[in-house]
């Protein structure tokens, strides 16, 4: 057993212990702290495997972002402590049996797979790790389309989270103009219009990406015209809540639909 394997097992068992504590502790805030430690252990494992950029991203995104967000979630929804965070003992024993059976099956499958530890002639490259340059070239080269679609996913997530978590009780003071029954209907339509706008924007910008990456000269001559509406469509859902005129979303939707049709080659 090499020294790398020993350290992997050591850090991995610490990570696993923190993960199990996060799943077993009754207090949810303590569970979140253990979960953060487990994520840091995973970051150390990434660093041991030569993925130092991913280790940094893990700490930034998960420990800095997700755990903080979940702590806010616990704080916003904590008036039910009498029920407890975990289920009764009978249910937990059944859950433990299910996960142990799954783990036994996985371990048997792993141990009966031959040739896992024999690196196929790539050992020197593999242990050197992937440099940041290689990662950047891979992200923006062969996986460029997936990268752009991921940005659209983040936009849709933002719009969806705002639409879902927004308070919409008609009685509460919102600081806007007073809401009557007709205005309430218009507001609902505006709220629905933002995901409706996001879908044609997604289609149009995917089409724009496809035309930009096509190698022919004629298509590249069209490319500045096709990328321009895609940029303005990205901004339209963000601008929309500040619009005071109720006709503006309809116009934007019509413009997006027209440009989406015009983008099709």
């Amino acid at each position: 057993m090499s020294s790398l394997e020993i350290s992997l097992y050591a850090v991995g068992s610490l990570t696993l212990a923190c993960g199990l504590l996060a799943m077993g502790v009754r207090n949810l805030v303590h569970a979140l702290l253990w979960f953060g430690l487990s994520l840091m252990g995973t970051a150390v494992l990434f660093a041991q495997l030569g993925a130092s950029f991913l280790a940094g991203m893990q700490i930034l995104l998960y420990v800095g972002g997700v755990v903080m967000l979940l702590i806010f979630g616990v704080m916003l929804t904590r008036e039910h402590e009498h029920l407890g965070a975990v289920r009764e003992v009978n249910h937990r024993i059944r859950a433990a049996v299910v996960s142990l059976v799954l783990f036994a099956a996985l371990v048997m499958a792993i141990l009966h797979t031959p040739g896992l530890d024999q690196a196929p002639g790539l050992a020197s490259q593999a242990t050197a790790g992937v440099t940041l340059d290689q990662l950047a070239v891979a992200l923006l080269g062969p996986y460029g389309i997936a990268f752009e679609v991921l940005s659209l996913l983040l936009l849709a997530t933002m719009v969806g989270a705002i639409v879902l978590a927004r308070k919409r009780d008609p009685g509460e003071p919102t600081g806007r103009k007073p809401i009557g029954r007709q205005n309430l209907g218009k507001q609902r339509i505006e709220g629905l219009a933002s995901p409706i706008i996001a879908l044609p924007a997604a289609a149009a910008s995917v089409a724009a990406i496809a035309t930009v990456q096509a190698p022919t000269v004629a298509v590249q001559a069209q490319a500045p015209q096709t990328t321009e509406p895609a940029v303005s469509e990205h901004e339209s859902p963000a601008e929309q809540p500040t619009d005071d005129t109720t006709d503006a979303p309809v116009d934007v939707a019509a413009a997006v639909a027209l440009s989406a049709q015009g983008d099709q080659p």
Binding site: G19, L20, M23, V86, R87, R92, A95, V98, F103
Partner: peptide
Amino acid sequence: CAGVYGLLSQ
């Protein structure tokens, strides 16, 4: 599997 246990027991 720790995650599966938590998913079933939380």
